[in-house]
Design a protein around this nucleic acid. Structure first.
Length: 423
RNA sequence: GUGGCUGUAGCUCAAUCGGUCAGAGCGCCGGACUGUGGCUCCGGAGGUUGCGGGUUCGAUUCCCGUCAGCCACCCCA
């Protein structure tokens, strides 16, 4: 009987884990650089936390079960409800604006495909308590700086920014869309770019089968490619300000206004954005926006919020496409080799002394030919091998071999153990 | 959950019309090299051809089912 990981779940072998950790390191660096504090919450939450906001149908997409206490629980599919709950608890005492980030592992039960698994890690950055567009610009800038820190420029990654308020105003004021229809229409518009004409059916449904208004909105959708007219409307003032802030920051080259970006989630209320690879081969790297009503709905505290989620899967694919197979960095600095078994005590003493100094040391776990030991040392990527044999021991020394060049030097064991620099 | 495509050693792949076709390269282990690695040469381990049925004298090859992967839908945290 052999086992493999469940569908959509990943085993993290050392090379893959190294790549993940690099992503995590950059996430933490950038978030910290922006003055964000890290938080975390439980991976398991009451099912109601999600059904309340998103409706019963989302249960189909959750890992749920009943625990031994009879509670309906779910593995968290997203971090925002947890954040809302946590912030609501301490909203009165927390100095606004709140800048928090988290790197949760999230779960979703659905058919996996490329860039979309049943489990992933996601950087969440949110600013809570500030409604102005500089807050939006701040989180967008942070998202861009993550991909910049990973070595991507405007030629590889782009940000598309939009604002639902602009769309909503035109839809209601000029195209006859009624307030209750708005969420459905926005969802249909979000699909328009991907699905094209096929999305028109959803649009019609959202408008109660009203052919005339459907036609009007469809024509509107077809014109969204050109952002200029909408960007000039009064409702676009926050978006213009946000884009201006990003330009002033120096990140303007990454940014383009594109009203075709709507985002699928119902709770977005203002500026929405996404990062994507410039070639458009992958799924969105990151998606986010403003959700000013969510905290009130979930936590009973009325605070404006803006934030994003950036998953490790698509980002990892982007890095892999550029860097090729994960290399994995050396785990060993110095390999201590012995000529014979009688050299072992000296080798162990030296190895331990080096480890005490924080140097990463490995040695062969059984007596082997020196050639074998050096082979292993090279395979490990160690920079140096230290060879101890009878003649060295007699002189109180060891041979230090630089594995890249083959250069060797005899160094006293005392000096090696206490201060020798393996440069 | 629905539909399409795919499934051979750890990895990348090969195997004429169903008939010694179960192989290669890389990787791994060992030897040449009993005090010096990366190269080279030699050898070895590793596969019930995803799994289960069926057709056939005979199936990696054809059919059905199932599981898994990829793609699209759904959904996009």
């Amino acid at each position: 009987m052999s086992f493999v990981a469940l569908p959509g779940f990943r085993d993290a072998f050392p090379d893959a884990l190294a790549r993940r950790r690099r992503i995590f390191d950059v996430w933490r660096q950038v978030a910290t650089r922006y003055g964000f504090e890290e938080y975390d919450g439980p991976p398991l939450e009451p099912l109601e936390l999600y059904t309340q906001k998103s409706g019963e149908e989302i249960v189909e997409q959750l890992y749920t079960f009943t625990d031994k206490g009879g509670r309906s629980v779910a593995l968290r599919p997203e971090m925002t409800p947890t954040l809302a709950r946590m912030v609501a608890q301490r909203a009165a005492q927390l100095r606004k604006p709140i800048r928090w980030f988290s790197i949760p592992q999230l779960f979703r039960y659905e058919r996996q495909q490329r860039g979309r698994l049943r489990e992933h890690f996601q950087l969440n950055m949110d600013i809570i308590g500030e409604a102005g567009p500089l807050a939006d610009a701040e989180v967008i800038a942070a998202a861009v700086d993550v991909v910049r820190a990973l070595g991507f420029g405007p030629g590889e990654v782009r940000v598309r920014v939009s604002d639902r308020r602009v769309l909503a105003e035109l839809l209601t004021d000029e195209l006859g869309v009624r307030e209750p229809e708005l969420p459905g229409v926005l969802t249909a518009l979000d699909k328009y770019e991907r699905a094209g004409a096929a999305a028109q059916a959803g649009l019609g449904a959202a408008l109660g089968g009203d052919a005339a208004r459907t036609e009007g909105v469809a024509r509107f959708a077809a014109r969204l490619r050109d952002p200029a007219p909408l960007l000039a409307t009064p409702a676009a003032a926050p978006l213009r300000a946000c884009v201006g802030h990003l330009a002033a920051t120096g990140l303007g080259a990454f940014v383009e206004v594109d009203f075709r970006v709507v985002r699928g989630l119902a709770y977005y209320t203002g500026i929405v954005f996404e990062l994507f690879d410039a070639k458009r081969e992958l799924r969105a790297i990151c998606g986010g926006g403003r959700y000013d009503n969510l905290l009130k709905d979930v936590g009973g505290v009325d605070l404006p919020c803006v934030g994003f989620g950036m998953g490790d899967v698509v980002l990892g694919e982007l890095i892999a496409a550029r860097d090729g197979p994960a290399a994995g960095s050396p785990a060993v600095d110095v390999f201590v080799a012995v000529v014979g078994a009688e050299d072992r005590p000296s080798a162990l003493a030296l190895a331990h002394a080096l480890r005490e100094r924080g140097i990463r040391v490995e040695f062969a776990l059984r007596t082997q030919a020196l050639g074998k030991q050096l082979e292993l040392a090279a395979a490990r990527g160690a920079r140096h091998a230290v060879v101890i044999g009878p003649s060295e021991r007699e002189a109180g020394e060891a041979v230090v071999r630089a594995l890249e060049t083959g250069a060797e030097a005899r160094v006293s064991l005392e000096h090696l153990a206490t201060e020798y620099g393996f440069a």
